[in-house]
Design a protein around this nucleic acid. Structure first.
Lengths: 211, 211
DNA sequence: GGCCAAGTGTACTTGTGGTACAGTTTTGCA
DNA sequence: TGCAAAACTGTACCACAAGTACACTTGGCC
């Protein structure tokens, strides 16, 4: 190596995580080699093992970072939407619209969901990572279930639905929408699915006769 | 090897494909080794390469088989439901219910969707495989779009929706539902999502006031 | 009794994960 | 300014799995 320059705290680790995330989303975890990561990050193999004990620790850090970021972004988005509006239903509908717009604004479409990626490589990971993944899904359910409880208190549902299932539906639709978008190479599919979900929520709590 | 017994035509190949499919759905394609497959199939490594030129050919055959089976199963299911009922809407609603029940009856939940698995390991595959995957998604869209055209002719939609997006929604929800089911380790999630979708279809074409 | 599908056996190359450890540079702080 | 700790580098290894190549063998069937 020509340049030998230690980075400020945490910088290199972040860079590795960033590179690893996109590689994992494109090829999967098993096919992402440490060697390609260190080459891209411009460090040596030893540098990698300075930051992570082994590849499994990378997997864990990667997912933890993803879940943390995800939660921060969507908490912010739905809180902002809620604060714009007194009514819980209309606040949530604004949130869903912002969500759809955010997905629409991604220049190359959504890069992929680590939870989904890990799900299809389950056996590669230890219990800690699998539990982390499960907790991520349940967190989404709880977040949206909270919205629906507040909404249902004011707007009795016009359709008989299980509110937990309705909360899971947004996770399923987002993960599925990402996949269909990626496979069909049409980035507009995901935001459209979010907007369809929004339409469903609207008819559940407001009915169809009000249109 | 102690036993040297050639199998009747196609038998061994099928066995490899069967073993490969479940292994790929559990660990991903890259992490599925040829060695473990041949060990499980009770043949030698050379035997594998007699049936498949390389690992890529296995990937292709695997996906092709999956898509063919998938199409046969769902064509049969929705055709049967349609023939039970004169009305296109009610026939389709019966089909969705059968679909949900089928998912509910799987003893260990849905084993996973190869399309989704391949999607998150995209860079591992050649163009043929990727095109095959995309064609699979478009086939689902066309199938359901056909249903909606027939339904909408008789029941003007009560909610403004894009029928192509509505057709994609079932693919997204199925793929997403599989993921959420697997990650949360709750096999009931997927059938519930299908039934929620069914409820959405019902309100779109019948409205909420008829309930 | 010969053909051919369906294999076996063996040897090889390459890539990857992981270990070990001594040395070097940079940063942050007092 | 000086020093300890952090953040690396370089080199040299090991074990093993993936994948390749190819000559050889077996058994069923017409």
């Amino acid at each position: 190596m020509l340049k030998v320059r230690a980075q400020p705290r945490g910088r290199t680790r972040e860079r590795i995580l960033e590179l690893a995330e996109s590689a994992v989303l494109e090829k999967g975890f098993a096919a992402t080699s440490i060697e390609e990561l260190v080459a891209a990050a411009g460090i040596s193999k030893s540098g990698f093992f300075y930051h992570f004990q082994d590849k499994g620790e990378l997997a864990e850090a990667l997912l933890q970072r993803y879940l943390d970021r995800d939660e921060a972004v969507y908490n912010d988005l739905f809180d902002r939407a809620d604060n714009l509006n007194e009514d819980p239903l209309h606040g949530f509908l604004v949130g869903l619209k912002l969500f759809a717009e955010m997905m629409d604004d991604l220049p190359h479409g959504h890069p992929g969901c680590l939870v989904a990626s890990y799900c299809y490589q389950d056996q590669m990971f230890n219990k800690t990572v699998r539990d982390l993944n499960a907790a991520g899904v349940l967190r989404w359910r709880r977040r949206f279930r909270g919205h629906f409880d507040r909404i249902a208190a004011r707007y009795p549902p016009r359709v008989e639905v299980d509110l937990d299932a309705l909360a899971d539906m947004i996770s399923a639709l987002a993960d599925g929408g990402i996949i269909i978008s990626k496979v069909a190479k049409d980035k507009s599919i995901l935001p459209k699915q979010i907007m369809l979900y929004r339409e469903f929520i609207r008819t559940i709590f407001l009915g169809t006769e009000t249109q």
